[in-house]
């Protein structure tokens, strides 16, 4: 079995860096832009994320998820820390009770992105509209639980519960999907 890009990076193969940027650069840039106030901030964040990724590459375990999800996890964690340290909210878009997830198109070489994303969409689609809205705000918008409670008028405890249950459902479906389809590795 061929080594994944991250496994090659972890072993010090610098040639894999370019491949990583080719395949996942747009993904990281997209996450950074969506949670940054401006382009300069997004560029700094992207730099931080990739340095963190080089450092964390050795922790990638292809048996529990794809590279895309691992890299997204790194990117999200970094952005969440940045948002908290700056004490500000991320980008804002408008939502209503009928918000539904739609699968974004993926680039041709991002098949694994599409696979796990499709599972996530299926999982979210099973949630009731209010839960979907909360999940969208908490996961995609980067809003804090308190902000979600304020915007939706729901009790903070309800927001936390809906987020927890939503993520558990997504996790369960991804695990089931991993049993029936190969989500492991990106090469």
């Amino acid at each position: 079995m061929n080594e994944s890009i991250l496994e090659r990076i972890a072993s010090g193969d610098q040639a894999a860096v370019a491949q990583c940027l080719d395949r996942y650069g747009g993904l990281v840039w997209s996450v950074a832009r969506s949670w940054s106030d401006n382009a300069a901030d997004a560029e700094d964040a992207t730099q931080e994320i990739f340095i963190a990724l080089w450092k964390s590459a050795a922790r990638y375990n292809p048996s529990v998820g794809s590279e895309a999800v691992f890299i997204s996890t790194i990117a999200r964690r970094r952005m969440i820390d940045r948002l908290r340290s700056k004490g500000r909210r991320p980008s804002t878009e408008e939502f209503d009770e009928s918000v539904m997830f739609e699968l974004a198109d993926s680039a041709p070489d991002q098949g694994m992105v599409a696979a796990e994303a499709a599972i996530a969409v299926r999982a979210v689609a099973q949630l009731e509209a209010g839960q979907q809205q909360v999940l969208m705000m908490g996961v995609v918008q980067g809003m804090t639980h308190s902000e979600i409670a304020t915007v939706t008028g729901k009790p903070l405890g309800t927001v936390k519960t809906q987020l927890r249950r939503g993520l558990i459902r997504v996790r369960e479906l991804i695990e089931q999907g991993a049993d029936s389809a190969d989500l492991k590795g990106a090469d």
């Binding site: 997204s72 974004a104 995609v140």
Partner: peptide, 21 residues
């Protein structure tokens, strides 16, 4: 990290298409 991966998968599902550095 299971919750982080679930959140990342949801985030991946709604990222805009065709982004390039």
């Amino acid at each position: 990290d299971a919750f982080d991966r679930a959140a990342a998968a949801v985030h991946l599902a709604v990222l805009p298409r065709g982004e390039f550095l």
